[in-house]
């Protein structure tokens, strides 16, 4: 009994990590492509305030109300940021940087004051505890499963459904929002839908990976996939694959070196990105350097040939 549980825990941790990455990639790809990926950073920090406020009001640490409360805080961050930008007194990046630290700081202060003895502390807030997800289980159809795993499965499915159903609309709104609007697709509504799901994903991922690592899982796999393909659907698929690989290798290496599992998983997304940055067939640094060198040699040879031809015989 104990042996089979021990066997299952590593699998559950790896699957949970992979699910965070996949759910993150599905929304993150569109954020990265429209140059708004830092909104995921803002959202994942701000939701702390929502989580703490809901916990103070209802005593609940997880569940639907918690999710709604945090998601509302996430959207409020986006809304306030855009309202600040609309005053034209502030650029987008500064507005993001102004809003979310305030929310995050408020959340952390409330934690300090009211939650000294509760398991959500600053460390968990930042990095999560993916190694201990099996401490909080729920039973579904006779199987005892970590709550994080179940939550991440649900949100991955929701994100997949959203992207699957609105794929064409999301693509157009990301590539050419003006045409999307002219054709009567509401890119603003779609964008808020996307950011709502980003907030909900951040809440679901919060216990497992915390706010900092969540940002890595939303931005790095899509950014890696972007270097490896020139098709949007493939970018989504590759981003999900990168997430799976990073979770599995991250878990194994974390065990081997006895370091933070979530941290190692995020590092592995970074390793995947670095490899793609150096080696990607078309956009990678090394293939480009090699092509430039080959072309230069080719040109030199052509010049030598023409010089040879001009020489009187």
């Amino acid at each position: 009994m104990l042996a089979s549980l021990m066997e299952r825990i590593p699998v559950m941790i790896m699957v949970t990590g992979a699910l965070v990455g996949m759910a993150g990639t599905l929304v993150g790809s569109f954020l990265v492509l429209s140059g708004r990926s830092m909104l995921s950073d803002a959202i994942s920090h701000s939701i702390i305030l929502g989580i703490v406020v809901v916990w103070l009001l209802t005593g609940q640490q997880t569940g639907p109300i918690q999710t709604i409360g945090a998601a509302v805080t996430g959207l409020l961050t986006v809304f306030l940021t855009q309202a600040l930008v609309r005053t034209r007194r502030m650029r987008n990046d500064a507005a993001i940087g102004l809003v979310f630290p305030v929310f995050f700081a408020l959340g952390v202060l409330l934690l300090n004051v009211y939650a000294r003895d509760v398991h959500i502390d600053e460390h968990t807030v930042l990095l999560g505890e993916i190694g201990f997800i099996w401490l909080d289980n729920i039973t579904i159809a006779g199987y005892e499963l970590p709550r994080s795993l179940v939550a991440m499965s649900a949100i991955t499915l929701v994100n997949l459904l959203f992207v699957g159903v609105f794929y064409k609309e999301l693509k157009l709104a990301t590539f050419d929002p003006m045409l999307a609007r002219a054709l009567g697709f509401a890119p603003g509504v779609l964008s808020y839908g996307l950011l709502l799901l980003t907030s909900v994903t951040a809440v679901a991922a919060f216990d497992a990976v915390g706010v900092i690592l969540f940002v890595a899982f939303v931005i790095v796999p899509p950014a890696t996939a972007y270097l490896l393909t020139e098709r949007l659907w493939l970018m989504l698929v590759i981003g999900c694959l990168v997430s799976v690989i990073a979770s599995v290798t991250g878990y194994i290496l974390a065990n081997y070196w006895d370091v933070s599992i979530g941290g190692m998983m995020a590092v592995m997304t970074g390793v995947a990105f670095t490899l793609a940055f150096l080696l990607a067939p078309r956009h990678g640094l090394l293939p480009r350097w090699w092509r430039a060198r080959r072309d230069a040699a080719h040109n030199r040879a052509a010049i030598d040939d023409s010089a040879e031809a001009k020489r009187p015989s």
Binding site: L33, G35, V165, F166, K168, E169, K171, L172, T174, F175, D176, M178, L179, L183, G184, F185, Y226, T229, E230, R231, L232, L234, M235
Partner: peptide, 25 residues
């Protein structure tokens, strides 16, 4: 007005012109 680094093909961009006729979904 658009990002030409977007991962898509010329044919796909032209097809976007028909999205209005196709409508949602």
């Amino acid at each position: 007005a658009v990002d030409w680094e977007f991962p898509t093909t010329a044919l796909d961009v032209v097809t976007m012109g028909l999205y209005g006729r196709l409508g949602w979904l």
